[in-house]
Amino acid sequence: MNGERPRRVVVTSPRTRAARRSRSYPIVREIDEQSEVGALYMRSLMRTQFRLGVLVVLLVCGPLAALPLLFSLVPLTKTVMVLGLPLPWLVLGLAVYPVVVAAACYYVWRVERTEREFADLVEQS
């Protein structure tokens, strides 16, 4: 019985040290100090943000950029009337703007969530 107690102390001691060390070296500080770990976290954040930005830009600009192609490939779309207006006027003059604002709102909502999650992740560790 007496021989077991010291061994238990030896086993638990590195764990407590590790836990204490992580509190005095949080990821925030790792990032701030440009350590490998910090760099890894920042790269992953940047990649997420970049992908989101490109996604939103492509979602809006892709279909928009396809419109001239559509007009020239399907000449009917140049003149067809929708809701009392020629289709090109309706799409280019009216419909574009709500879509752009909606895409912007979506982007801000997503990007702020990403940043919040990143902050939580970093502060937990």
Partner: peptide, 24 residues
């Protein structure tokens, strides 16, 4: 004619690109 509607669209979407990739 309507080709010129691309000017205001561009002036607006330019801000969206700015928002998504540059602003913050």
């Amino acid at each position: 004619g309507p080709d010129m509607l691309w000017y205001p669209i561009g002036y607006t979407v330019g801000y969206l690109v700015l928002l998504a990739l540059v602003a913050a």
